[in-house]
Nucleic acid binder design. Structure first.
Lengths: 225, 225
DNA sequence: GTCTATAAAGTGATAGAC
DNA sequence: GTCTATCACTTTATAGAC
């Protein structure tokens, strides 16, 4: 093996681990399997990482970030909000169908982190990243379609993430493409009902939809973007 | 250990396995851990089951069935459909909060089955059971509220299961009870928009909403129950 | 029927030669 | 810096004594 910097080795091992996990699951991602996938002897693993969990932690962070960047690009040219939402769901779903193992790996990593002491803070970060992606896409999509969301942006984003999670799990279980398409249709119909045309005299309070600034969670405000 | 029939042993081991998985995850459910939890020597495990996977297979079937029976009881006395749906979601969510490990175990078992050759047919059965529960509750709830669903029952059921899956995963990740409550509010609002008062001249075609009998998935019929 | 003892294979991690 | 060889441990599964 030619000489690599410690950082190069770490990156190569993380990418190798991701391939192994996508192909055969988190359980199969042993230090030996990861090192072999990266074409390194086992000892190089522990030269680059203190432990297997240290690699898993870096892996989740890197994959979440790369998913964030990839999904951010999925804004389409649609002008009406229903079509834009439907297209966004389809773009995500195409990703799932193209690489089911990869998306499955994200769920497995979530559950692994939930069960592993010392990794317990990862799930929150993972979902916060999902929510942020959803918020950005929903905000930009609404702006392009000249609509505002009638629920706080955070809540719409949570709905989107919940729906896509459910969509993904259901499809992974039954591989029913047509049912997934119908589900995305219904979800897009629903989300579109949460948007209304902008009123030009709209107040500009709380443009972020920050949950901490909501005066009363019980009240359901009329205008957010 | 006193003498037990083979069937009693199998049942005891399955229940012990479920406790271990709920407490510490699928990975921790080794034959040793399961036998110890059941208070048996290791060899009794292999006397009752040919292999660990044979137990897992039986475990999933039993747990799915017991969840089916438990959830079937969750019909409330609410008469308007929005309240009934909201109460149903709350009943499910209370179950998740009370026993998070158990619900987490169902996801872990799904992913385990998806990765294990010979268990590949379990996920489909698991989700078909979820869908059936949802269909029964939605049909009965609609009947009590004197409404009909404006989408095929199957599609409403898939929406419900997707939303609850997403709800559960999100809560497991961030443990945000208030956010989960808001999500259930939005979901109930949405699902209620898919119901309309019964028209008494309603035709009685396709009362089951069977997907195989739908003439054209692209068309979105107006009346189903 | 029941259980101790052990086989056979796999695991994360490391010592120490080069 | 790199890698072979190995440690200490855990896993599933079974042989064979009682």
């Amino acid at each position: 093996m030619t000489r690599l910097s410690a950082e190069e080795r770490r990156s190569a091992l993380v990418q190798a681990a991701l391939r192994v996990i996508a192909r055969r699951g988190v359980t199969a991602a042993t230090t030996r399997a990861i090192a072999a996938e990266a074409g390194m002897p086992l000892a190089s693993f522990h030269y680059a990482f203190r432990s297997r969990d240290e690699l898993i932690r870096e892996l989740v962070a890197i994959v979440v970030e790369s998913e964030r960047l990839a999904t951010m690009k999925s804004l389409t040219a649609d002008v009406d909000i229903r079509s834009a939402v439907r297209a966004g769901l389809q773009a995500y779903f195409d990703l799932v169908v193209t690489e089911p193992g990869r998306e499955q790996a994200m769920f497995e990593l979530l559950h692994y982190a939930l069960r592993t002491p010392g990794l317990g803070d990862l799930p929150r970060a993972q979902y916060e990243s999902y929510y942020e992606v959803a918020r950005v896409l929903l905000r930009e999509g609404a702006a392009r379609a000249n609509v505002t969301w009638t629920l706080p942006l955070d809540e719409v984003a949570k709905l989107v993430v919940s729906l896509t999670d459910g969509l993904t799990l259901g499809w992974l279980a039954d591989r029913d493409d047509a049912a997934a398409a119908r589900l995305m249709d219904s979800a897009a119909d629903f989300l579109a009902t949460l948007a209304e045309p902008v009123s030009h005299s709209e107040p500009v309070t709380d443009p972020q939809g920050n949950p901490d600034t909501q005066p009363d969670p019980k009240s359901r405000p009329e205008e957010h973007s």
